[in-house]
Design a protein around this nucleic acid. Structure first.
Lengths: 156, 156
DNA sequence: TTTGGTTACGTGCCGCGTAAGGATA
DNA sequence: TATCCTTACGCGGCACGTAACCAAA
């Protein structure tokens, strides 16, 4: 399965238009329609419903939409990891309880934007280190910076 | 990016042989070697090291190996979700704290293997329902069966 | 009338097999 | 010597664009 097919399908559903997706992808509408058809043939299911002039996802389309986004995200991460030796890049998803979202995270992000504080390798509380995995040093530094910011804020 | 390229790369690294990967994939060694080359060209990095007669992953290859497996796994899930209306399939990964791994989960799995107990839609404690997402009914039923098993075991 | 989706058709290139050559156990 | 990886080469198919057609706003 080609990820470009998944990207086309996701764009078509998100934008609700084959023509608009074609413009984003630098393709002709015919090519985009064919990509969706190919994906449908490969998966053996109809993914988009053509109702008049607009397009929407079928039930099967909705069912795989989230997974398609996951695959595209993973591929983006994979590409980022290739030349990811020590520089920042890619996307970091942070989650937290409601209290953190309202209080801790905004302040922590403010500190994150201060580039000089990014290199604090030993500031992370040890009780959090066990939660880190993967080998992307850039993301590791981001998380370390976040934890350092959280630590400094907690001490205030 | 074509997932078949990733699959070829993963096979080559896992098996340590282009010829063996070609046999598994029903391809010629030339085709497999070309797939790896294409992938390397697309990612802009050398992924496998040819040392004499055997092949191994380079540092960049090792770095993306886990992610490549993730992508392949996600695509398999995506395919499974297409015609996944009510039957079991795919792979379910369960995690738990050490105490659960030692005590609760083995018993719960034993109950899971009793097919007659799989259809217990309302047995899941409500406090856990918020943790479930996705719409794969088969997996949902598996989780529900797990929770039902956990519930019945807790009551003992 | 303008915009959007589809179909038919032509074409370039990609991705495969085949065959031959070199290297290693 | 047999197996493995590579390279060169040829070919078929697929994935585009183009153009024409139809439908909807």
């Amino acid at each position: 399965m080609d990820s470009r097919y998944l990207q086309s399908f996701v764009f078509v559903v998100e934008l609700g238009s084959i023509a608009e997706a074609a413009r984003r992808l630098d393709l002709t509408p015919a090519a985009v329609a064919q990509r969706v058809k190919m994906l449908e043939a490969e998966l053996g299911a109809t993914l988009v419903r053509r109702s008049g002039r607009t397009v929407g996802a079928t039930e099967a389309g909705e069912r795989i939409l989230a997974r398609a986004r996951t695959v595209l995200h993973d591929i983006r991460d994979l590409r980022a990891d290739i030349d990811d030796t020590d520089q920042l890049g890619g996307q970091l998803r942070l989650g937290g309880m409601a209290t953190m979202m309202a209080g801790l995270i905004p302040d922590a992000l403010a500190v994150l934007l201060d580039l000089k504080k990014w290199a604090l390798p030993h500031a992370a509380p040890k009780r959090f280190v066990g939660l880190l995995w993967g080998r992307s040093s850039a993301r590791l530094r981001l998380v370390q910076a976040f934890l350092a910011a959280a630590d400094s804020i907690e001490r205030h």
